[in-house]
Design a protein around this nucleic acid. Structure first.
Lengths: 142, 142
DNA sequence: CAGCATCCCGTATGATACTG
DNA sequence: CAGTATCATACGGGATGCTG
């Protein structure tokens, strides 16, 4: 959502497969944690107010504000402003936002499925690495 | 892959749905651009050497090195070192790495499908925003 | 309540230089 | 070629304070 990485990688246009560029753009757009979490929350609850989302996600006001604006701009969420006192603003998913749930779920599903395996792999790897550094001072760190 | 966001959001554990935590971890793990791009490249070409990946992705040496190490640690890629001169190191996907392709493809597919729509939505949104700032000095910026 | 503006810090990441 | 070490920088994102 342009909140995340979109800049760097200026080098990424002289070389290789345009797909990589493409995918990069894709990830830049929907890859940031907050956007995904907001979409998921909205998809589950239908409609939420600003502070409801804030509390629910444990996101800072600033990031929620930025994220919602981007999501609205990208056409993934609807923003409904009720000029009451106090003001009330409700957010919900647009059809496109809804369609985004699927791929996200797929990703989430995979991750949940493999989380344990990954953790195990890490332990194994780290253990092996330990062996390598057996003799070393093991970094005193600060 | 722990390269990306993993810290912040320390606030994210006193409140709401554990799913959000979960998904956050998920995204922390596979959400960074380079990991995804590396996996995609490897899945397409089967086996690639360090510099092949580097050129192919337009990634800096540093990030590729870090990314590959994490991917290996997480058990997503195999690293084969050939102690020849000059040295030759080949990377390929593990079965788990292969299984990761699916969700990634789903995401990529969605994004490609909706990219145009999103762009259109942005233009509309920006145009509308323009209207709002019609009278304003339009930020002299520096 | 909704949301913008500021300040500030940690870290992700690219550039450069060096090694086996 | 494959990688590590170091430096510099920008961006992500939280804390705080203000407005309507």
């Amino acid at each position: 959502m342009s909140l995340g990485y979109t800049k760097g990688t200026d080098m990424l246009d002289s070389e290789q497969c345009p797909d990589c560029k493409r995918i990069n753009e894709v990830l830049s757009r929907v890859g940031d944690r907050w956007s995904v979490l907001v979409v998921i929350s909205l998809s589950r609850y239908g409609t939420l107010r600003f502070n409801e989302l804030k509390r629910h996600l444990g996101i800072s006001q600033r990031m929620l504000s930025l994220t919602l604006r981007e999501l609205e701009r990208d056409g993934l969420v609807n923003r409904t402003y009720h000029p009451t006192i106090p003001p009330k603003v409700e957010y919900s998913l647009t059809p496109m936002g809804e369609s985004f749930r699927e791929p996200v779920r797929a990703l989430g599903h995979w991750a949940l499925e493999n989380q344990a395996i990954i953790d195990a792999a890490r332990e194994t790897y780290d253990a092996a690495a330990e062996g390598q550094n057996a003799g070393k001072p093991a970094v005193p760190s600060i």
